[in-house]
Design a protein around this nucleic acid. Structure first.
Lengths: 259, 259
DNA sequence: CGACATGTTGAACCTCATCAACCGACGTGG
DNA sequence: CCACGTCGGTTGATGAGGTTCAACATGTCG
């Protein structure tokens, strides 16, 4: 009785994938996983590279494995709004349509698990669980988008920045996956440039910078370096953002709620 | 050989339903339709009434049959942002979760086709087509939400108003359903109050009023009465909104794209 | 080391929110 | 029937918050 290594290989590939337990594939059984493997390819994009462009048809979708992807839309006269930031395990692209209404661009260096669209849609058809999970994720994404509308529509600059930082804190809390130590040192990464923060929050870079300085001056945070901040007063930060302070959950593996 | 009238009744009820061809049920076969009928109830809400409130669990979802529903979220200090306007055939409520993150309120008098949540989710499980359609609709909704983020994030007051009017024009163009004459008279309804427009567009009522007056002064529109406007220059309107002008489609029955 | 990108800080301007007065429509009660 | 209050909408005056323009600082890469 022998074991067919080739048969197991694809499963192992996914087995070591960092987003295996959170992305769409978390609900895939062995059969579905093998099918996904056959149409998937890990691709790297450098910061600044365009992954897919609005108006141009795209023949693949994907999952963010590492890095941050920004979804953007540009007004006819050139202003750019970031309508979504996608983090590891998030889904990129528009299923069941030829093109996306938005461009996707690598905000940092990005690894993407790319899936050919026709193949992917066939797999969705064959595996209800996957399609169901996609529906759930899309509903969460919609809630998150609407939450962001609240921010864009009626929050002040200070509230916006605080909300953004808080979102990063929440993300860090919820993706600990047990392998990282609990963040008693409350240092977090600012994964994107000031310009991208500005684009996401609907304000000017200068205002972003000023508000960060203000939070620093008020002793709410400290800027370790340009890409890392330390939270000195989480309560105050949450208060400024107009939200409840987040709580660290020990094992956040299955904490899928989005912020 | 006799016909069981009771058997046919539910189908007839839906048969005369104005949103039968556009809502979720458009993909329901007779069997699914009968199942939906058994858990559905047409309910009326008066303008201003709360349909469901964030934080409070809700045991039903629904489809807007007539009227306009606003989805709102309130900041801790009382500012209200409207994160979505739902028109006839749009879906209300959050499937696969106990409560919605947003409140739904009748912006006008509303007729809602209410469906008990547990029953509805069972029907989704039994009828893939329905769940698939829900996925497609949710994806469209997400695109629309992101489109709105562009508006909230980087458009001026004038652009916002123009975009809003244009959205109403598009809706009217796309839901003609052949029964209404093509709108050679370009008169459209403002289905919500100035306050709700303001809440949706993220600006003050006064600004809404002023911008409407400005469009009037510029000869782009005319205010027939407080709830109806006539478009005198569609091209200009689209230009101000920063979009392509919409085109009237003869038979828009299956035009499901959202704006 | 200089060149270029990215981030910060300062000053002037402008859009829009805010406060306030006013108008017309509507409903109620005297 | 008219006086009255209320509510939704419009218009005017004022000021604050945030954009814009500009200079400067910092960091990175050849």
């Amino acid at each position: 009785m022998s074991i067919d290594i080739a048969e197991l290989l694809p499963l192992n590939r996914c087995g070591t994938c960092p987003i295996r337990h959170r992305a769409l594939c978390s609900v895939a059984d062995d059969k579905a996983l093998k099918a996904l493997n056959q149409i998937s390819r890990r691709t790297r994009f450098e910061a600044g590279q365009t992954i897919m462009s609005e108006e141009a048809p795209v023949d693949f979708v994907g999952n963010v494995v590492s890095g941050v992807v920004k979804l953007t839309k540009i007004t006819p006269d050139g202003r750019e709004q970031i309508v979504g930031l996608l983090f590891p395990s998030d889904f990129v692209g528009r299923t069941f349509a030829d093109s996306s209404a938005f461009s996707a661009e690598a905000a940092t260096d990005v690894e993407l698990c790319c899936l050919q669209k026709p193949g992917f849609e066939r797999i969705l058809a064959d595996h209800r669980d996957l399609e169901h999970k996609l529906l759930i994720d899309t509903l969460d994404e919609l809630d998150a988008a609407r939450e962001w509308m609240l921010l864009l529509g009626c929050k002040t600059a200070a509230e916006k920045i605080a909300s953004f930082l808080l979102m990063l804190v929440r993300r860090a809390f919820n993706t600990g996956c047990g392998q990282d130590p609990p963040p008693n040192q409350l240092v977090f990464e600012l994964p994107v440039s000031r310009a991208d923060m500005a684009g996401y929050l609907g304000m000017a870079v200068e205002t972003v910078s000023r508000q960060l300085s203000q939070l620093k001056a008020d002793g709410v945070i400290r800027l370790v370096d340009v890409q890392h901040f330390l939270v000195k007063d989480l309560g105050r930060l949450a208060e400024i953002a107009g939200q409840e302070p987040p709580v660290y959950v020990e094992d956040a593996e299955f904490e899928t709620r989005r912020y």
